[in-house]
């Protein structure tokens, strides 16, 4: 039972990361129906930005986190304007391949600038392990979970209570009608990219702090899993991405904790298998809406 609770705690902190990244996927997909393949790389970029902010700019941790979020948001905006905007009218395949190209580009530019090896992420907090009658909680896990919850509330506030959020929801439902209602669609899409990128960057900084290292390929696997999380929760749905992220995190932690030597190497495979099953059984995910195809 204690082991189970420990795995739940591991799963929740891992799931926070996936949820933050999944939010970016789901928001972008919701608004322009594009799988932003480069999203995992923005997470990686955010981790590097955070690391450099702490080591080079000597910022305290929370300022470094905000710095990383702002820089990554700018990167997200640039990518959207330069690469995705010209393709908004073209086929989905073309847009998806462009996104893959961007992802490839970001990875290799980072590898060239920062080197192929892992870089150390400075340990700004002393890690404390609290022992609550056998349940071990790492102070960093609390930090990850706390930051994630704060960001999620902030996002919900923006989406549900502000004019900008209303514009985002309107564009997601019907782009053409929103134009008629006086919504600036281009700006709304750009801001969606900025918010999604900032969330991914926050996740990247947190995971860098937790794993004490950053490397150029670190975005690929979490990016894919976060996408699985977004699909699992229902792509396009913001609460769905949160639930999906936590679900994937918990599942991975439980397979790793209980699979033993036989199954735990397959924990990633289990996540992908779940993706395929969800896509086949309920492609709209847990909270997604079913869209009928019209001829």
């Amino acid at each position: 039972m204690l082991e189970f609770l420990n795995q739940i705690i591991n799963g929740l902190s891992l799931g926070s990361i996936y949820a933050l990244v999944a939010l970016g996927y789901t928001m972008v997909y919701g608004i322009i129906r594009l799988i932003n393949f480069a999203h995992g790389e923005i997470y990686m970029f955010g981790a590097f930005a955070g690391m450099l902010a702490i080591t080079v700019l000597r910022l305290p941790f929370f300022l470094a986190l905000i710095f990383a979020m702002v820089v990554s948001a700018l990167l997200g905006v640039v990518i959207e304007r330069v690469a995705y905007k010209p393709l908004r009218k073209s086929t989905k395949t073309a847009a998806l391949i462009t996104a893959i190209g961007i992802s490839f580009l970001l990875q290799n530019v980072t590898a060239m600038v920062m080197g192929n090896n892992t870089s150390a992420f400075p340990q700004v907090f002393d890690q404390k392990v609290y022992d609550l009658g056998g349940i071990r909680i790492n102070s960093l896990q609390i930090l990850i979970f706390g930051v994630t919850i704060v960001l999620m509330f902030l996002l919900q506030f923006i989406v549900l209570k502000t004019k900008l959020g209303r514009a985002m929801r309107a564009v997601a439902v019907d782009k053409d009608a929103s134009v008629l209602m006086g919504v600036n669609v281009d700006n709304t899409i750009t801001i969606t990219f900025a918010i999604g990128s900032a969330l991914a960057a926050a996740a990247g900084v947190l995971i860098g702090l937790y794993h004490i290292r950053v490397v150029f390929w670190m975005g690929t696997a979490p990016g894919l899993k976060a996408f699985v999380a977004a699909v699992f929760g229902g792509i396009g749905s913001i609460p769905g991405a949160m639930i999906g992220g936590f679900a994937i995190g918990l599942m991975e932690a439980l397979v790793a904790g209980y699979g033993g030597t036989m199954w735990s190497p397959y924990r990633d495979a289990v996540v992908y298998l779940l993706l395929i099953i969800v896509l086949l059984v309920k492609p709209s995910g847990l909270l997604g809406k079913n869209v009928k195809e019209k001829v």
């Binding site: 989905k92 894919l224 699985v228 993706l275 086949l280």
Partner: peptide, 26 residues
């Protein structure tokens, strides 16, 4: 089963399959 999926969903599913093959071989 997967070819019933359209466009980008299919792309992601095939990506998942390749990853599963890689992990199994690993």
């Amino acid at each position: 089963p997967t070819l019933r999926l359209k466009g980008d969903y299919l792309a992601i599913a095939t990506l998942g399959v390749a990853e599963i093959i890689r992990i199994v071989l690993n």
